[in-house]
Amino acid sequence: MRMSENSSLLMLGSQGTSMNSSSNSSVSPPSADWVAPTFTRAAQFRVVATLVLFLFAAFSNLAVLISVARGRGRRLASHLRPLIMSLAVADLMMTFIVMPLDMVWNVTVQWYAGDAMCKLLCFLKLFAMHSSAFILVVISLDRHHAILRPLDSFDAKRRNKRMLLLAWSLSLLLASPQLFIFRVIKAEGVDFTQCVTHGSFQQRWQETVYNMFQFVTLYVVPLLVMSLCYTRILIEINHQIHKSKGGESCLRRSGTDMIPKARMKTLKMTIIIVVSFVVCWTPYYLLGIWYWFHPQMIQVTPEYVNHILFVFGNLNTCCDPVIYGLYTPSFRADLAVCWFCRPQDSSPKSLDRLSARQGNPSAEQESDAPSVDQMRANEE
């Protein structure tokens, strides 16, 4: 038996040295025929791929954070800035905690950082994953309120701050058990030390219950809330379209818009961000569920499958800034300024003129992205 990797869904201690290894859960110490895990070719691919994602995610998410905090992104609506910044911070936590920890742990195979770091890093790892999911929930709830209750825009900033505080607090709370269940264990009779949950659960079903609880709070509940929000949004949009066709009056930003263009643009952006989260992480979660209920599958599943799915999940951290850039001309302008070392345009006819105006409650500021026609007019 090999005591090395936590192949469970939550990657609570995943080091990816060998998919033939058992979970780092409540297993007995290695027997006489125990073989120490090695830094396999598949694990080497995982490290290289994760390093590439780390470099891209670090640069792109830092660029988003700087743009919103100090660049043209400051012209975003005041209630949207904290959402985008929180998403960038959550992605940076995934980038600077989850990815480096996974890479180093794969290379070293064993755990050399001591018991305190074992507990702390496993806690931070799950905290980063929860915060990333919960921030997406907050963004979805904000879009839901903006579309279904557009006249309540003046309270959006305070409401979003409360939701963000709740999201970060829940992330801390749900990740805190990691500080108690993970510990450093030295295998008997061999020179091998690992950060594992061995001894924290009396029975395997107890660990399964814990993992399932984390899975529900990390993935199922956020997915249900986001699905409900966007389903109601689409129903409302469809309802407004039918009202318009039936000749009924409805709130319009212009004579041709059912919903303000900037608001629709932000809605499309957030939908794609949520879809990328679901697409990237669902395969890895499904593999984890399969393992929980059929532990023997770890003996027959090729090692590279776990590695590929983990790398694919981390791709989500790179997708968020790309999607934001595609829908936000101001971010692209900030990148151009940085790339060509040009001074920022501080004129009133800046690229980032907001689509909404103060004093008009029905035209809530939703995005810093002007329409294509406005961009072309400004450039000309």
Rank of each mutant, 00 (worst) to 15 (best):
M264A: 09
I272S: 08
V274L: 06
P295E: 04
V278K: 08
T270L: 02
P295F: 12
W290R: 07
Y291M: 11
I298D: 11
K268L: 10
V300F: 05
I298Y: 14
E303T: 10
V279K: 00
L267R: 00
T266S: 08
E303G: 03
V278Y: 14
Q296K: 04
V275L: 09
Y304H: 05
K268H: 10
I272H: 07
Y284K: 00
V274G: 05
Q296V: 00
I271A: 14
L287S: 12
Y291V: 08
I272R: 01
W292Y: 03
V278W: 15
I271K: 03
I271E: 12
M297C: 05
L287H: 09
Q296T: 06
C280L: 12
W292G: 04
P295A: 09
F277P: 01
Y304A: 13
T270P: 11
F277I: 02
T270I: 07
I289N: 11
I259S: 06
P260F: 15
M269H: 02
V274C: 07
L287I: 05
F277M: 12
L267G: 02
V279R: 00
I272F: 08
T301L: 08
G288H: 12
K265W: 00
F293T: 09
V300D: 03
E303I: 03
F277G: 07
V300R: 10
G288S: 08
I259G: 08
G288P: 15
L286A: 15
Y304I: 15
W290A: 11
I273P: 00
Q299D: 06
M269L: 12
K268D: 06
P260K: 05
P260Q: 13
R263Q: 14
K268W: 09
K261G: 10
W290K: 04
V275G: 01
T270Q: 01
T282I: 15
P295N: 01
Q299L: 09
V278G: 03
T301Y: 13
M269T: 02
C280D: 02
P283G: 04
W281I: 09
K261C: 04
T301F: 12
V279H: 00
I298G: 14
T266V: 00
Q299C: 01
I289L: 15
Q296P: 07
M264H: 05
V278S: 11
Y304D: 14
C280T: 06
I289S: 10
W292A: 09
I273C: 07
K268G: 04
H294N: 09
I289D: 15
V278R: 07
T282R: 10
H294Y: 13
E303P: 04
F277W: 14
T301D: 07
V274N: 10
I289A: 09
W292N: 09
V279N: 03
V279T: 10
W290F: 14
Y285E: 14
M269I: 03
I273L: 08
P302Y: 03
P283S: 02
S276C: 15
Y284L: 01
R263D: 09
T282N: 14
T270R: 00
I271Q: 05
V278N: 09
A262T: 01
L286K: 07
S276A: 15
W281D: 04
Y291D: 01
Q299N: 12
L287M: 05
T270K: 10
F277D: 11
Q296S: 07
L286P: 06
Y304M: 11
W281E: 02
W290S: 15
T266I: 00
T270W: 02
